[in-house]
Design a protein around this nucleic acid. Structure first.
Lengths: 101, 101
DNA sequence: CTGGATCCTCAACGATACTG
DNA sequence: CAGTATCGTTGAGGATCCAG
């Protein structure tokens, strides 16, 4: 009766951060706790506007980031990490360090 | 002249571990340092044989794992992490912890 | 400025069968 | 036992245009 069942939660984590830009977005929000959409665009120039919006929406739906919309013209939004999102610091910074080689 | 260029190595890390089962394989090899192909199959039952072989091959090509083949019949192989692979411990275990919620 | 809607492509992945 | 070969599907992501 050993609990040899894979006992692996990695798959769930992967589902939430495996988007092409999600972990980068989280990383940027760790370094810059409050970001406008256009700021994130500048921080991640290789990510298209469409993809940025898409990944931000998914991250928000998964409860990793919060979106604050100011009802002004032109529109202004601010993104920041939830606590749950901040908890990914270890993972995301680990990826950054490892990638530096 | 602030080094505002994204300075982000995460994308490279992502390229190497973003396969559907790669991080799980690494996790299993952290817990079981030497594994045969069939052992990994048992540890990760949701991963098909084809995918397992594929991801193992890519991990090997990227220098994250080592494959040892015994020239016997029937064939016997053993997989283990390289140092580079072991360096992912922080990331992979972080994913596991975070996923546990 | 911050998105959404549409269309399209390609590579990741699954299912199945075969092999030394 | 430890893979490879082949075929088919799907959905993530790119390009472009539209909108409040």
């Amino acid at each position: 009766m050993t609990n040899q069942t894979s006992q692996c939660s990695i798959e769930k984590t992967l589902k939430q951060i495996s988007g092409k830009w999600k972990s980068v977005i989280i990383y940027m929000l760790l370094k810059h706790p409050v970001c406008r959409f256009s700021e994130l665009q500048r921080f991640i120039p290789d990510c298209s506007r469409r993809m940025l919006a898409l990944q931000l929406k998914e991250l928000e739906q998964d409860g990793l980031i919060t979106k604050k919309v100011y009802p002004v013209t032109p529109p202004k939004t601010e993104y920041s990490l939830t606590e749950r999102g901040k908890d990914l610091r270890t993972v995301v910074e680990g990826m950054q360090e490892w990638g530096k080689h």
